[in-house]
Design a protein around this nucleic acid. Structure first.
Lengths: 330, 330
DNA sequence: ACGATTACCGTAAACGTTTACGCATTCTTG
DNA sequence: CAAGAATGCGTAAACGTTTACGGTAATCGT
């Protein structure tokens, strides 16, 4: 269908080499032949074939982004950051939703390998041994976002979950709360589960408040698990005055549960979230939460992936955004 | 780095043709040579190069998805549907966020053309003449989602916006409301703006309620424009008892504004949304809204794109989901 | 004015596959 | 048991580029 570089060469009365040169604007031709070539490119409606290019260059200007879900504002915002600079740098992004399913992850890794992507951004999920091995075998740059690994030396971009969690819990304590429930991610989750629980425990401990297992409920970061966990928690330890949810979505779940149960937030129950996605701004009442620079993390991820030099992991800053879901008890 | 089909051929003591045959499992070899080839593939850790394949096959197993935004639950859910079946059918998706920016759209179209994608899904945006022309020149399948065109014969998948909007407005009327505000998309938007206004007008008219321009505020489907429009509307026509927002996000905006202004929803103001994204479920109070089968629309889009036969446009069903943001006045 | 650069351009190999074609060898069939 | 069909396999062209190499012709320096 489309015309090729050979067609252009023939019509313009030059060789394919020359056409290639003007396309990639290298040197080695008169201004006149350049005009001529450009003109016939226009006439024939020629567009270069990136596949053929990729074959010889061994570069596809394509990166793969692996993420465990598409339906959370965190992922959207991150994807937005990634796409924005990828487009600026003229890279395409292949979307890989692993759905937190290991076999899907490996399938996608295989596809990305076959498609010869120039790099991979791996988001949020725990990096299993097998994933890591596949990626080092691919010999292309990899950067991790919101996760990390000891086993391989891929650079990562994330916030210090334990510290952020400590900050959130301490904030509640400063506001006079002592009976603080927590809604965590999956218990065994080494990336967004365990470290945040550690921060919570440490904050409690530093304030002389004993930690008790029954103050923690386990969700999956999504809304519904938030309402379910809120119910569970408020039945088990009804005297709590505050809850720290490790995602905004789950925090919104507790808001919803409280609304239905006739519990007023923040008057009877304070709630703090995590992420500062737009969900937090949209909540009623507006949600106090830990801000992560999500968009920026996406941006940095692509820049790091594309930078030729040595890649240093970066810990991003976070801060509390005070809105209206936490009440001071003093 | 990676080994090629030639390496496999050499090590296995066969020709590249034979290796190719067993990889694509065609016929023309003994069970024995098949074993042998498979074994050396394993040993060498060979993986086929999809780029080289694409060059000769003129198929890349890749589709492009163009959408105007990444940060709305509508797009997420749609993308989720698209990705889910694309992966099942072994197609990769290239993400193209046009950001409702025409030049970005044309850039992306050019990239998709060069990258030889097998098809394009074009979402939500109005299909300009130039976009359409580029796509017909590409001679690959295109399907439109949540938009349409008279000018080209690309099939579309969408719900009947005018009818759905009529239904939403009529629902409010049935509940006894007569002073009904509307928050619409951009006035000139031929896809999600104008048609929905028409439905609103018609419902009013059929109920004998005069239409007045000042009952309409114009947003951009996003949250902030929702709160801004709510403020505008409630200052201009404070006696309204209900508002119909043409996206859930904007509806949440009015919920937020009402909350801040001390207006109780639904007691003092009823709100109905559009889309039935998860935002509606998460809202406080839970949002009554028009349900669109968004995920399913993504699924159908990919299936239609990949189906070889003639492609018939489809109008998807919608329905009202009654939650708690609308009060009956009788 | 003469050799040495330099500018312009073409030829052809290479990238890693698929596949049409052809050639032995084996299998069928009457 | 011979002729034809089927099976198993290899050779080489093709896909659309980029680029190393080489060859003229023009320009430079002295």
């Amino acid at each position: 269908m489309g015309s090729t570089i050979k067609d252009v060469a023939r019509y313009a009365g030059v060789s394919v080499a020359t056409v290639s040169r003007v396309i990639n604007n290298l040197s080695g031709y008169t201004e006149e032949t350049r005009k001529q070539v450009l003109r016939t490119i226009e006439e024939l409606g020629y567009t270069p074939n990136a596949i053929a290019r990729g074959l010889v260059n061994k570069k596809t200007s394509t990166i793969g982004v692996l993420l465990p879900s598409l339906t959370s504002k965190f992922m959207n915002e991150l994807l937005n950051g990634i796409e924005s600079v990828a487009h600026k740098r003229e890279k395409s992004v292949i979307l890989c939703n692993t759905d937190t399913d290991g076999s899907r992850t490996e399938q996608y890794l295989k596809v990305l390998n076959e498609k010869q992507v120039d790099g991979i951004i791996f988001v949020s999920e725990w990096l299993k041994e097998s994933y890591g091995q596949i990626m080092v075998d691919m010999k292309i740059p990899v950067v991790l976002v919101s996760t990390y690994t000891y086993r391989f030396n891929f650079p990562y971009i994330r916030v210090d979950d334990t510290k952020a969690s400590y900050t959130a819990t301490s904030y509640l304590i400063e506001k006079g709360h002592r009976e603080i429930g927590m809604i965590s991610g999956r218990r065994g989750d080494p990336v967004a589960g365990y470290p945040r629980i550690e921060g919570y425990k440490k904050a409690l401990n530093d304030a002389g408040i004993p930690f008790r297992e029954e103050y923690i409920a386990y969700g999956d970061f999504h809304y519904r698990s938030g309402v379910k966990s809120a119910e569970e928690l408020l039945k088990r330890v009804p005297h709590i005055t505050a809850v720290f949810a490790t995602s905004d979505e789950m925090a919104l779940g507790v808001l919803s549960y409280a609304y239905r149960a006739g519990i007023s937030v923040p008057d009877e129950l304070s709630v703090i979230g995590y992420d500062d996605t737009q969900d937090a701004e949209m909540a009623i009442p507006p949600l106090t939460t830990i801000h992560q620079p999500i968009f920026e993390m996406g941006v940095r991820a692509v820049e790091m992936l594309l930078s030729p030099g040595g890649k240093e992991s970066v810990i991003m800053p976070y801060h509390i955004v005070e809105r209206e879901s936490v009440k001071s008890l003093q």
